[in-house]
Amino acid sequence: MAILEVRDLKMYYKTLRGHVKAVDSVSFDIERGKALGIAGESGCGKTSMAVTVLRLLPSNGKIHGGSVKLDGIDIVKLDDEEFRKSVRWKKISMVFQGAMNALNPVHRVGDQIVEAILAHEDVPHQEAATRAEELLDMVGINPKRYKEYPHEFSGGMKQRVVIAMALACNPDVIIADEPTTALDVMVQSQVLKAMEDLRKRLDLSMMLITHDLSVIAQTCDNIAIMYAGKIVEYGNVIDVFDNPTHPYGMGLVKSFPNIKAERTRVRSLPGFPPNLLAPPKGCRFHPRCPLAGDICMEEEPELIEIGSNSHKVACHKVDMLERGVNIWEQ
């Protein structure tokens, strides 16, 4: 059974010029112990979706419908206090983007983990401190460094501390928002390896948000590709990477440089994502899509299953695409 079931989730930001539909009817599941990667360009709503699930919205962001079921309970319906007490960090926690700068520079690293524990659990300080040491150990940092300050840590280690913090209350689901984006390749590899080991050991479910498709390919079971607030393609990583079918998904996967591949020209997708204040009518990708026809400008395509293994694509021209034409080739 899916531990996290998101259905038709809508979250809009209210601005002076109208609603920004950052998350617009998004549905997906995460099975227990599995990892879902959310891919997409900046501004496609990946991070907005994460903060919606954790209900950490800014004052102008509001959920306009849909449900988020965690273990069968709709956490959208809980009141704020109850959500804070029983769900946030205890059931779902998050590793924030730019986590390296998320640590408070004037507090000791260990104390910051203790703070996270004490904010959510009623345990004696000593017990929390012991747990903080265990957590540091778990992410591969010597617990003796409990008393050090963030500036004494390297970027990769700070990132590990933030991961330890997210694990502080034994959550079931962890949301990692661009957890390695600012790190060098070798450090990125070390951090993701540590996360992968932890996830297996603790049977954690994960939602990994990144624009880096190679990270998803290496660490996730499933992938959802977002464009302009919607999921346009969803499926098992192997299906999606082998046979990306949505024109956008195809462009994104094919434009990602692969060091192991033979040298080819670097591809790109012409154009840029739409303004979410007034997204294009019909399929939101139609202004950039080489296949777009009349129907694409009028009707919004549904996310429908193609083939097997619940590979889903939201495109009117899916029949054409299934035949495997590479529309971006000229």
Binding site: Q218, D242, K260
Partner: peptide, 21 residues
Amino acid sequence: RALIGAVFVPDPKRKGFGKVL
């Protein structure tokens, strides 16, 4: 070698974290 090994490949069938320094 380590640098090249650490670069992730966008291909889920070639999983594996390279040996890093």
